[in-house]
Design a protein around this nucleic acid. Sequence first.
DNA 1: TCTGGGGTCCTAGGACCC
DNA 2: TCTGGGGTCCTAGGACCC
Length: 419
Amino acid sequence: MFALIDCNNFYASCERVFRPDLVGKPVVVLSNNDGCVIARSSEAKAIGIPMGAAAFEYEKMFKQNNVHVFSANFALYGDMSQRVMDILSGYSPEIEIYSIDEAFLKLKGFEKFDLQKYGAEMRYKVQKWTGIPISVGIAPTKALAKVANKIAKKYPKELQNVYIIDTEEKRAKALKWLKIEDVWGIGRQHSKRLKAINVNTAYDFTQLDDAWVKTHLAIVGLRLKHDLSGIPTLDLEEVQPKKNISTARSFENNYTELEQLRERIVTFAVSCAEKLRKQNSCCNSLRVFIHTNEHRKDLPQYSRNMVIKLPFPTNSSMELATFANLALQKIFREGYHYKKAGVIVQDFTPENTQQLKLFESRNEKHIPLMQVVDKLNKSYGQQKIRLAGQDIKRIWKMKQEKLSPRYTTKLSDIITIHC
DNA sequence: TCTGGGGTCCTAGGACCC
DNA sequence: TCTGGGGTCCTAGGACCC
């Protein structure tokens, strides 16, 4: 059996852990730049605030309903996530951390266990130790565990947030209940196509012909069909080193000057380089993209990206910044209002197995230098050591008007308890 | 005025090789 | 009028996830 554990309304729940006065009240968390809604408490969902709602369009609604609004505090969420995952790791030797708020457990050899009780225990302990409410779905396959979890979430009172699919009857009933567009792995395009041939539930989907599924939804869709049918097809996945790493941001205001974008691109390249060093990889190519605000129909639109093949693999901040800058100069055009830009590094090779090049190679001196920079930044705070091309005066800032304290990761933000 | 960020996998088609 | 067969690699685009 597999268990899927999912934190309920994760970001909103994290904010509530340190603001117990908000329990039972509507809470939303906004994306970077306070742009749109990325998490909602159940009360906020009930009011009718949709996922992805633009914050400025809902300002009035927030006020009218006393919705508590937070800027995204990823330092807090990341740390809370780790605490939850640490606890879950104690429930099975095989765990796959699927996302910041979700994990699969493989329950192999648990035949003698009362899994209903086991799930309830997980839920109790995570709630008690971290303050985060979770839902638990247990079933013979990963896709079915996802379905079970959905049911556990949908009927929290009746099921106490734990649901098990362990009989053929329960499986059929669950799949008939689940709408096709809510199936894990079926997105907007696929559900549109499926509805057109009168496939409206997960159950209908499992009744389709294998060949049809393979043709229209490719091999991924076929695997999903089998997994939903109760044939274990998807297994836990190992943590793999990343194949792409990107850093991208929208700007609070539009940028029109090359110099403004240059500072951002250099900073993004430095950030990618840091992430690369963290996983001991070097990249062989780098992509830079810039684009205008697509929502502004009144302004001329422009969007371009460029890939640069590096002459040698590197993860040096300075080298990557130089190449990123080069790409930016090639794609930048005067006369546009730029809203977003980013750097993506790709095509990785391991740091310690460098292919030597005849004519050009990375500057070996950068290796110890970068080690020192990483060490200093780790001890004294992010971006204490920066390149000259970065925002030395710290002009750039993200719109974060409602940021909560970093309760668990910053010494000065730890809560004070008055006894 | 204001609309996020970071990933994965698969497939088709073109360029190229012998 | 008729023009081989069998590959690899790369890229762009489309689909999906949180």
